[in-house]
Design a protein around this nucleic acid. Sequence first.
RNA 1: GCUGGGGUGGCCGAAUGGUUCAGGCGGUAGCCUGCAGAGCUGCUCUAUAUGGGUUCAAUUCCCAUCCCCAGCUCCA
Length: 475
Amino acid sequence: MTNKQASICLFNTLTRKKETFTSIVPDKAKIYTCGPTVYDYAHIGNFRAFLFEDILKRWLTYRGYKVIHIMNLTDIDDKTIKGSQKKGIPLQDYTEFYVNAFFEDIKALNILPADVYPKATEHICEMIKIIQILLKKGVAYKGEDGSIYFSIAKYPEYGKLSHIKVNELKAGARVNQDEYAKEEAQDFALWKAWTPEDGKIYWDTELGRGRPGWHIECSAMSMKYLGETFDIHCGGIDNMFPHHENELAQSEASTEKKFVNYWMHNEHLQVEGKKMSKRFGNFYTLRDLLAKGYDPIVIRYLLISTHYRQQFNFTFEGLESAKAAVDRLRNFVRRIHEVEGTTMTEKVSTLTSKLEACFGGSMDDDLNIGTALAALFDFIREMNVLLDANLVSKEEAVQVGGLMIRIDEVLGVIGKVEIKEVLSEDVDALVQKREEARRAKNWKEADTIRTQLKAIGIILEDTTQGVRWHKEKKV
RNA sequence: GCUGGGGUGGCCGAAUGGUUCAGGCGGUAGCCUGCAGAGCUGCUCUAUAUGGGUUCAAUUCCCAUCCCCAGCUCCA
């Protein structure tokens, strides 16, 4: 479904305004999103960010853009180094494990894969090139400790993304110990000189022995794959400062071109009303929830159902509620597939046009998924009324089914609804046996069989068109 | 401390200077059903943190207060 007339508005952190999205190359959207640091399993907060980016991508695609998406994997930093040393295994073996876990998780959540997942450790050369340019331009300098720092004094626009005035920054508890080596406390490391704590983890380069700073990897990898200026850069709100601010500064200082046109940041989530933290015992990885038996798609629905710039309160009650909502969507689609009627009214096409307009208009408005979902549920209710009255033809039902598929290409929560799954023979025999019992009005036996089937996850529903059944999805 | 975001019904969450403040979930009554499920309909008490102000009219704009959350150098 493409609609070239439609214009998508996105909230740009740079301007703090909603702006009409215009891509550099028509019909192509180049997106860079900050990926995971692969030192542990990702938690549900991380996935809120990845799901927001997934929805953005899917919506751009729906509107006819060819999306090119790069997501980095940070496989070299303090945490990965510490983790690998603690386990006594090579850094790469350590991070590879969590990279694989990450891929499993995003697949479970039905997140579309990025086009490229560049790793920091595989782009040291590209980073060094940028650092050398910055040194040459005098924007970077070598500190007394041998590390190379970016001098924010040389980049007057510093702070334009986060709107932070550098001189107001709190000289607080987290100021780096090696601060003495920098000219200004706010200068940040582009290249970190080797220290004994790094052990075997270092690169011998033109810049000396050491490892890259955190921010430089995103500059190097985004520009390598997307060009010096690209369309959209996403990440969690916490990354806005200092990570993205620094990334922006070093990129623009090196290229003297605008780095990114649209910066988008998602808000964090809370769990049961509190900040998610291990201390409160409310810290969950996706795996924790799956182990409790929750359906990853229900988790997906819950995490996408709140606008991305809104703080979101994750609760287990919400998860139950999300399951019911997803069931409602799936029940509707299942019902649509079963339509055999012939009566046609104009009502169905009126409703589908309304849905497309409302859903699309909402999503165009900075991915306002709340009103988009409201439009979808309105549509379902009104369609159910028509279905109850047997006023939908098979032909119309097929069209509605097609629209639901297009919408689900954006939401990714309905999936394939099995209409004619094959039942195992003994299960099928039970269903038949119950039908006979019902015909004989032997309700007791019929109910026993129904309970029996429910225990193995087969839900039976008696309708005027005969018995209908489907497999129960886990919560 | 500084800088942002926010406080909407039983819960989650939209929206808006103006007829009845989306939608989902839950509860409840009814229709349908052998029953259940699904679906539909009604209800869910004064739902917009509090106190002022602007306005013919504010939940929406302004001010103050209280509370929550985040950022403040490598946490999405």
